[in-house]
């Protein structure tokens, strides 16, 4: 873990993507954090009415709880900015979504071209998706083993700072 005010670049010189999290438990060695969930529309003034944000219950956030080494003596309730290499984020997205999708589509298109029947294409899509998920699982294990999926503590969040403040024009 990096000290407060850590570099905004990873060890390979690539920029870090920032996210916000709140400390929910901490001891001398480890801090447990929950990410502040964003919505796919980025949130807006009418978020309370549209219901996108209300779907994020406590159970969902608990499932996303993660641990960091508590070198900076984080305390419960503090908001912090955490970072991950943008390269790692794109690789993680590709592993979770692109690999299963491409396997599924490849299998479905191949079955359709070979048989010309929708039933076979659907069965092949399911088989391709299953194979893609297995490949994704193996690849995610490798990313995890290399430490690519571990976020870094960057700094404490400023009062009122939100994800949409960053880079906003």
């Amino acid at each position: 873990m990096s000290p407060a005010g850590a570099s905004l670049f990873d060890s390979g010189g690539r920029p870090l993507v920032e996210g916000f999290a709140r400390v929910v438990a901490a001891d001398t060695a480890t801090a447990w954090l929950e990410p502040e969930q964003t919505s796919s529309c980025g949130g807006c003034a009418s978020a309370a009415a549209c219901g996108v944000k209300s779907g994020q219950g406590n159970r969902r956030l608990e499932a996303r709880r993660f641990a960091l080494a508590n070198d900076c003596q984080l305390r419960v309730g503090e908001r912090v900015v955490i970072g991950i290499s943008e390269y790692a984020l794109i690789r993680a997205s590709a592993t979770a979504y692109a690999i299963p999708l491409l396997c599924m589509m490849g299998a479905a298109v191949a079955a359709q071209l070979l048989t010309g029947r929708d039933g076979w294409a659907m069965a092949a899509a399911v088989a391709g998706l299953t194979a893609g998920l297995l490949i994704a699982r193996l690849r995610a294990g490798r990313l995890q083993a290399r430490g690519d999926l571990t976020p870094r503590y960057l700094r404490h969040a400023r009062s009122g700072e939100e994800c949409n403040d960053r880079g906003e024009d």
Binding site: A63, I84, A96, A136
Partner: peptide
């Protein structure tokens, strides 16, 4: 659910930086 089952660490990492509810 599938992303969580396939790799909990991947799920947590993506959950910090990306909105996982991707519907519009």
């Amino acid at each position: 659910s599938v992303v969580r089952k396939v790799s909990p660490s991947l799920f947590r990492t993506l959950g910090i930086y990306l909105p996982l509810i991707t519907t519009n």
